[in-house]
Amino acid sequence: MTRREEKMHYPIVIERGSDTEAYGVIVPDLPGCFSAGDAFEEAVSNAAEAIALWVEDAIDQGKEVPRPSSLDALRARPDWAGPEWIWGFASVDPALFDDTTERVNITLPRRILARLDSRAKDAGETRSGFIAKMALSA
């Protein structure tokens, strides 16, 4: 097993919420990536999930995924100037960006393995390809 990298931290811009409005979250480095939450902590957590989904979709479409900018660089941009913004970070696992193939060892009952192989064959896939396809479609 390889050593896991530390989390990546994307700067996020948070719009203040209230008793009647959710906190809005924008990820400046990822166009169109946004989220919200009724509580501040929920908004930040939802932003991390939105980032993961954005990255997965971009990779599936063959697009480049920007790395996180520095907070200072983003705050210096005129479109993010002003006291109405709260700045923070959402953490994501760098494995989201890694397409390196890795061999894994799994243990399955023979009857399940036979069913898996049959379904993979019917789909015109290898066992590994079929498992990957199932995981990505879940």
Rank of each mutant, 00 (worst) to 15 (best):
58 A>D: 03
104 V>W: 09
19 D>K: 10
28 P>E: 03
56 E>T: 11
101 T>Q: 11
126 T>F: 03
61 Q>V: 00
133 K>D: 13
4 R>G: 13
50 A>M: 03
102 E>W: 04
77 R>I: 00
51 I>W: 02
106 I>R: 01
96 L>V: 07
76 A>S: 13
118 S>W: 09
81 A>S: 14
95 A>K: 12
81 A>C: 07
111 R>H: 15
21 E>S: 12
78 P>L: 04
26 I>Q: 04
128 S>D: 04
100 T>H: 10
125 E>F: 12
70 S>K: 11
112 I>W: 10
24 G>F: 02
35 S>R: 01
87 W>C: 04
61 Q>F: 11
4 R>Q: 14
46 N>Y: 01
104 V>T: 12
53 L>T: 05
132 A>D: 12
103 R>M: 10
33 C>T: 05
113 L>G: 07
9 H>R: 12
120 A>Y: 06
82 G>M: 05
110 R>I: 08
122 D>K: 14
66 P>D: 06
70 S>V: 00
116 L>H: 10
132 A>H: 08
94 P>R: 07
12 I>L: 03
74 L>R: 06
49 E>V: 05
3 R>V: 11
58 A>T: 02
84 E>Y: 08
77 R>P: 00
46 N>D: 10
93 D>I: 08
64 E>F: 05
99 D>T: 12
25 V>T: 01
86 I>F: 13
18 S>L: 08
70 S>C: 06
23 Y>K: 04
72 D>T: 11
104 V>R: 13
10 Y>L: 02
11 P>Y: 05
56 E>H: 10
66 P>F: 02
71 L>Y: 11
50 A>K: 00
25 V>A: 00
77 R>M: 15
111 R>N: 14
78 P>Y: 11
122 D>M: 06
1 M>D: 12
136 L>H: 14
76 A>N: 14
135 A>K: 03
35 S>A: 12
16 R>Y: 08
97 F>G: 07
70 S>T: 15
80 W>A: 03
57 D>C: 02
68 P>N: 08
5 E>C: 07
80 W>H: 04
124 G>L: 04
6 E>H: 11
100 T>A: 15
84 E>L: 09
67 R>W: 04
61 Q>W: 10
12 I>D: 00
76 A>L: 08
105 N>S: 14
86 I>Q: 14
35 S>M: 03
101 T>L: 14
82 G>P: 07
42 E>T: 07
109 P>G: 12
30 L>A: 05
133 K>C: 00
103 R>C: 00
21 E>G: 00
7 K>Y: 05
135 A>L: 13
34 F>H: 13
10 Y>A: 01
98 D>P: 05
60 D>I: 00
5 E>M: 07
93 D>Y: 09
43 A>D: 00
102 E>Y: 11
74 L>I: 11
